[in-house]
Write a protein that binds this DNA or RNA. Structure first.
Lengths: 207, 207
DNA sequence: TAGATTGTTAATCGATTAACAATC
DNA sequence: TAGATTGTTAATCGATTAACAATC
C-alpha cells in the first residue's frame, strides 16, 4: 500500500471496477485476477493492480482478488457505504430519465429532491421523489442534507443554479448543462457532456 | 502549424471550443484571444493555442482569433460542415431525452432513425424521426448511410447491439450503456457514463 | 512605434506500463 | 514444490505549461 497522491484518473476508474465486480459476483464468481479485470474492462492489468494498491493490499499473490471483499472495500473508499443524498435541478426530459434510472439503481446514492422553476405544472412528486419550486432550493437542501447536485437546466441558467447549490451547502456537482461552470476550489465538478462526446466522434469518420 | 500526431485530448476539446465560440459570435464579439478562451473554459491559454495550431495558423499576433473564421475552421476539422447521420438504439427514457435534445440542436448531426425491440408499442415516429424494429437495423443503417450509433439499451444488450451496428457499417459509437464494449480497432467508441461520474464524486465529499 | 498576443520550443508534470522480486 | 499473480519500482510515454522570439 503506497501513500502517494491518488489521481483523479484512478478515482474515476473505481466505480467502473465496482460495477464490474458486482456483476462478477452476480455470476457467482468468487475471485478474479488483475489480468481478467483488465481484459474485460480494457485496462492494463498493471494499472488495475496499481489503482487498487493505493488503498491497501487486497490481493492474494498467486490467486488474485476476493470479489466480495473488493466490492466492500471500493464501496468504502468511494463512501458509497454511507447514504448520500442527491438532488436534480431542472426537470426536463433528461431530468426525468435520470430519475427513472435512479429509481432502479440499488445503491446508497438516492435522489431526494427535484427542483424546477415550473413546479406548479409538474405536480408534487415523481417516482416517489418530491418536486419543489426553485424558491425552496436552499431550505430543502439544508433540511435534507443534500451534498451532491445534478444540474440539467438549460445552459443559460447553469451558473446561477451552481451558485445557489453551493450557497446551500452542496459540495459536488454533476453538470449536464453544456457549459463550463466556475466554482470555488473546494467544490468538485464533473461533467456529463454527451454533445461534446458525439461531436468529437465525427472527427474520426473517414474523410 | 505543426504536424505531430493530434491527441484524443485535443480532439475532445474542439467541440468545447466550438460551442463556446458560437455563443461568443451570438454576443456579437468578433475576435478573441487564447487568454479569454482559456479563462472562460478553464483551460490553459497555451493549451488553447497549441490545440488550434495543430490545424493551421489562425491567430493574428497581437489580436487573437477571428471568431467567425475559427468557427468555420473547427467545424471543418470535426467534419461538422458535412451532414452526418446518426441513429439511436434503445428508445427508453434516455433515448427520448436525447431525441428531444437533438431536435433543438442546430448542427449537421441529425438522428435519422430510432431502433427498439418494441417498435410496435412505440409508434412509427417521434419528433419526426422514424422508429424501426431492431430486425430492420442493418437495412435501415445501410439505406440511410448512418455512420454513428448511439446505444441506450440496457447493459445486457449493449455488446450485441454494438456488433450489429458495426456489421451494418457504423464507424463510431456513443455508448450510454454502463458497460465496456469490445470493438475492432478501427471503430471509435466514446462513453457517456454518468453513473460513473456521479459515483466518483462521492469520494470527494468530506469524511 | 509600443503593446499585445501568437506559435512553438523546451521543461515539467503526471499517468501508464513493463518488469520482476516476493510470496501465496 | 511449481505455477500464478500480486505489489511496486523504474522506465516510458504523453499531455500540460512556462517562456519567449516573432510579429501584427
Amino acid at each position: 500500500m503506497s501513500d502517494k497522491k491518488i489521481s483523479d484518473a484512478t478515482i474515476k476508474r473505481l466505480p467502473i471496477y465496482l460495477r464490474f465486480l458486482e456483476r462478477t459476483k452476480a455470476s457467482n464468481i468468487k475471485s478474479i485476477s488483475s489480468n481478467e479485470i483488465g481484459n474485460l474492462l480494457k485496462f492494463n492489468p498493471a494499472q488495475v493492480r496499481k489503482d487498487l494498491s493505493f488503498f491497501g493490499d487486497f490481493g492474494k499473490k498467486g490467486f488474485g482478488y476476493d470479489v466480495d471483499h473488493l466490492i466492500l472495500t471500493i464501496r468504502k473508499i468511494l463512501q458509497l457505504d454511507k447514504e448520500i443524498s442527491v438532488c436534480i435541478v431542472g426537470f426536463g426530459h433528461l431530468g426525468h430519465a435520470l430519475c427513472h434510472y435512479s429509481a432502479y439503481q440499488q445503491d446508497n446514492m438516492k435522489i431526494k429532491a427535484i427542483f424546477d422553476k415550473q413546479q406548479d405544472k409538474l405536480g408534487n412528486e415523481f417516482d416517489g421523489i418530491p418536486i419543489f419550486n426553485m424558491n425552496n432550493l436552499t431550505d430543502v437542501i439544508k433540511e435534507k442534507n443534500i451534498k451532491i447536485g445534478i444540474i440539467t437546466v438549460p445552459h443559460e441558467f447553469a451558473q446561477e443554479v451552481a451558485n445557489a447549490l453551493i450557497d446551500a451547502g452542496v459540495k459536488a456537482i454533476l453538470n449536464f448543462a453544456p457549459i463550463t461552470i466556475h466554482v470555488p476550489d473546494e467544490i468538485k465538478v464533473h461533467y456529463a457532456d454527451f454533445t461534446t462526446e458525439l461531436h468529437s466522434l465525427a472527427y474520426f469518420l473517414e474523410k
